[in-house]
């Protein structure tokens, strides 16, 4: 039966089974755990850049989803060819362009050169030692020459993303859907809504790729279920999630996935305590060489 019309504004494009089983990076020999780490770091980088660019969380979340979509499938982008930082910057630029708050290439590149600076970056996966008290401005300054060359890279990556995704760049974000569901159940409370948003934003970084495997309504329901549990808010009796077209199995899976986010993030932070996560294609290859060498020993 054909899908019901009029639900487009509630649903997203999802990855197919084939796309989930093989990725372009794995074909290029990048191990799955490294791929997950780089994707995680790239998503965090995207989120941080969005915050510094003062973009609304809706736009940031869309950028992270586009960033995630790019690496999926054998015909997606490979970490051995494209640098995660470039794709992240292009995702932010592209999403902002289509939103009500467009931003300029210069702003985007300024923010990224700060966030990727080895000395000044506040991000743990770029600068594991943390920024000094007052890092020298030269360490994160974008010179005019670099700007011009980086701008060309940014625009080329933008076109690459569009081609790789076949222009499928529309992303529906579950945050507003979750609020509507909460209101429907007469359970709005600021604390609960905050917790739900936290879960939804954390799920963006999930190694289980929740935003490209599940529809926004399911993500919203799972976040509500989990948030209400944690905040001790009593929701409707009975299987209320079915009203929102989510079945028990899917809800269970998503709740487990969302709860495991914290553990995953902690493990990643622990794993990359001493060295930065490679966000450039060359660094990824170098990391691969190192791994091969250590495996050989």
């Amino acid at each position: 039966m054909a899908p019901i019309q009029g639900l487009d504004s509630l649903s997203n494009a999802l990855a197919t089974l084939a796309q989930l089983s093989t990725s372009s990076s794995s074909l290029d020999g990048v191990p799955t755990d490294l791929e997950a780490s780089v994707r995680f770091a790239g998503s965090l980088l995207t989120q941080a850049a969005g915050v510094l660019l003062r973009l609304p969380q809706e736009v940031i979340a869309q950028a992270v989803v586009i960033f995630t979509r790019f690496w999926i499938g054998p015909e997606g982008g490979s970490l051995a060819i494209y640098s995660a930082k470039d794709i992240s910057a292009a995702s932010v630029y592209l999403t902002a362009k289509l939103s009500f708050q467009p931003t300029s290439p210069r702003s985007v590149l300024n923010v990224y050169s700060f966030l990727l600076s080895k000395e000044a970056s506040p991000l743990w996966f770029v600068n594991p030692n943390g920024p000094g008290v007052q890092p020298a401005p030269e360490t994160y300054y974008l010179s005019e020459g670099t700007y011009q060359s980086e701008r060309l890279v940014l625009l080329r990556m933008e076109a690459t993303i569009l081609r790789t995704l076949g222009f499928q760049i529309r992303v529906i974000i579950p945050h507003t859907i979750a609020l509507t569901y909460l209101q429907t159940m007469n359970a709005t409370s600021p604390a609960l809504a905050k917790r739900i948003f936290e879960h939804l934003s954390a799920a963006l970084l999930s190694p289980q790729l929740l935003y490209v495997t599940h529809q926004p309504n399911a993500l919203a329901v799972a976040a509500i279920y989990l948030g209400a549990r944690e905040e001790g808010v009593k929701l409707a009796d009975g299987e209320w999630w079915k009203v929102f077209d989510v079945d028990r199995e899917e809800l269970g899976f998503l709740v487990v996935a969302m709860r495991s986010m914290n553990g995953f993030a902690m493990a990643e932070k622990d794993k990359w305590k001493t060295q930065p996560i490679p966000l450039i294609a060359d660094d990824v290859m170098e990391e691969l060489e190192k791994k091969r060498a250590s495996d050989g020993d």
């Binding site: 649903s11 494009a13 999802l14 015909e75 081609r163 995704l165 077209d245």
Partner: peptide
């Protein structure tokens, strides 16, 4: 449960 349309994506 309603089945939501889930378009796919692929390169152009």
């Amino acid at each position: 449960c309603l089945r939501f349309p889930a378009p796919e994506w692929g390169p152009c």
